[in-house]
């Protein structure tokens, strides 16, 4: 099943060196992360050493080797957000979902990471949950977005 999916993803590329990043993006979009096996197959598909695939995958912040939560929370640590209280917002979120930046809850409900800038600076501080941006956050709004009754523990 998974192999079939990977084959399908790869089939829309020619396997050129320049395809590497788009392939990694497509694989991650389909698998939620970059599984080790997939990276090995990608290396063979393009004809480069596995270490090179791994080197690229770990250079760019978009790529992850571990799975994401169903609700992937991206907290912005941009300048405007920072001076309008982003560090406190991040703390509140960490408290509410019970994990730290870079972690995933054991039930895979939430994953949390920070990003250099979401580009929604006028609404600072802001976060993104999957594709939705939430701006002008306050600790109260964080409480609404993450009801604490569902506290989880890190994996």
């Amino acid at each position: 099943m998974k192999e079939e999916l990977l084959r399908r993803v790869l089939s829309s590329y020619k396997g050129r060196r320049g395809d590497l990043i788009p392939i990694l993006q497509a694989v991650q979009a389909n698998f939620g992360r970059l599984p080790e096996e997939a990276m090995l197959k990608i290396a063979r598909f393009i004809g480069i050493p596995e270490s090179e695939v791994y080197a690229v995958a770990t250079f760019y912040t978009q790529f992850r080797l571990t799975p994401l939560g169903r609700k992937h929370v991206t907290a912005c640590r941009g300048t405007a957000c920072h001076i309008r209280g982003a560090p406190q917002i991040l703390q509140e979120i960490e408290k509410a979902v019970g994990i730290k930046e870079g972690e995933v809850t054991s039930d895979l409900e939430y994953s949390l990471e920070t990003v250099a800038c979401i580009g929604c600076c006028a609404l600072a501080p802001c976060i993104r949950i999957n594709r939705d941006v939430h701006g002008e956050l306050t600790p109260e709004r964080v409480e609404e977005l993450f009801p604490t009754s569902k506290q989880c523990h890190p994996e």
Partner: peptide, 8 residues
């Protein structure tokens, strides 16, 4: 590749 934090 607008990577600067604080620019959109």
């Amino acid at each position: 590749d607008e990577g600067d934090p604080g620019a959109f």
